[in-house]
């Protein structure tokens, strides 16, 4: 049974790759960084790196949730843009109006998430199409509201997100806390278990007594709300309103989840591995920057990493 033993080892190896591949890759990348770009670990670089990771990471948590229910959300860019406009317009630079502005942002974000969820469940529109349409619609509506001129000011108070103790800043703390929260929710609460069930097989879930639509809608609302959190942080970070504030982040968030091992077909993935995926992508970008590679080269590297991750997972998942 020597042969049996090797095939068992292969099986264990495959499971290991699927479950821990992203963490091992992250570890290897950090070692590579120690050798190639030691200044990555300087406090200044690390602070920026983590802050940017947090902005992406908070969106990626939400994206992981929609991926878990076999969907995706392309409208997060719109939510972030809307959030920054609401903050600037409603508060108009006045700190005391900030809670109202943020509250309104959350409310509108939830409505957008609800719209995504309803279109996908009740009208059976594919998530890609529904959320893309909502993205375009939100962008358009916000620009109609601003008449193309970003008015208002971002209150000083919001720049609190730029403060940091060492390389730990408020966005990073938020990211870690939210990740921990969702790790707990997904693993240890009935809601999390049911979300996996709905994503894994909607028919079985429904015949097991779950209201499938309700769970899917919840995932989209949560995704929108998390995008809104990231929008608040980004607005404070950038300090002004910009239509392209979230450009690239939306798709990077999906990429990070996929690099972390979350499947497009639903029911598989975790927010912890998404966090590792986010770090992997951000560290790679920063290293490329420190090595003086062109932005084009950075994109190529990013693309290769995403493809490599997906190829590795699919290899490990086929027997």
């Amino acid at each position: 049974m020597v042969l049996g033993a090797t095939s068992s080892t292969a099986h264990t190896l495959r499971r290991f790759v699927v479950q821990y591949g992203v963490y091992v890759s992250l570890g290897l990348l950090l070692i590579a960084a120690l050798i190639l770009t030691p200044n990555l670990f300087s406090e200044q670089t690390l602070t920026v790196l983590l802050k940017q990771s947090a902005q992406l990471g908070i969106i990626a948590i939400g994206q992981t949730l929609t991926l878990l229910v076999a969907g995706l959300d392309l409208s997060v860019g719109g939510v972030i843009f809307m959030t920054s406009v609401i903050i600037a317009r409603v508060s108009n630079g006045v700190d005391s109006a900030l809670p109202l502005a943020i509250g309104l942002s959350f409310l509108f974000s939830a409505v957008i998430g609800l719209a995504n969820g309803l279109l996908i469940t009740k009208r059976r529109i594919p998530p890609f199409v529904a959320t893309l349409a909502i993205f375009i619609l939100v962008q358009g509506a916000v620009q109609a509201y601003t008449r193309g001129v970003p008015g208002g000011f971002v209150p000083e108070g919001l720049s609190v997100v730029n403060q940091s103790a060492g390389f730990i800043s408020i966005p990073v703390v938020l990211w870690v806390v939210l990740t921990a929260l969702f790790v707990f929710v997904l693993r240890k609460t009935p809601f999390g278990r049911r979300l996996y069930a709905v994503g894994s097989n909607a028919d079985t879930a429904s015949l097991s007594g779950l209201n499938v639509d309700r769970f899917k809608i919840a995932a989209y609302i949560l995704c929108s709300l998390l995008a809104c959190v990231s929008g608040v942080v980004l607005t404070g970070y950038v300090g002004y309103v910009d239509r392209f504030i979230a450009s690239g982040l939306d798709l990077d968030a999906i990429a990070a989840a996929v690099v972390g091992g979350t499947l497009f077909t639903g029911g598989r993935g975790s927010v912890l591995s998404t966090m590792a995926g986010v770090l992997l992508i951000q560290i790679l970008s920063t290293m490329a920057l420190l090595l003086g590679l062109s932005i084009q080269t950075q994109f190529i590297i990013k693309g290769v990493v995403i493809l490599a991750a997906v190829a590795l997972y699919s290899l490990a998942r086929t027997d």
């Binding site: 996996y196 069930a197 894994s200 097989n201 028919d203 079985t204 879930a205 015949l207 029911g267 598989r268």
Partner: peptide
């Protein structure tokens, strides 16, 4: 298709 979650 309807009784199990095969991947869970």
């Amino acid at each position: 298709a309807q009784g199990l979650f095969t991947a869970l």
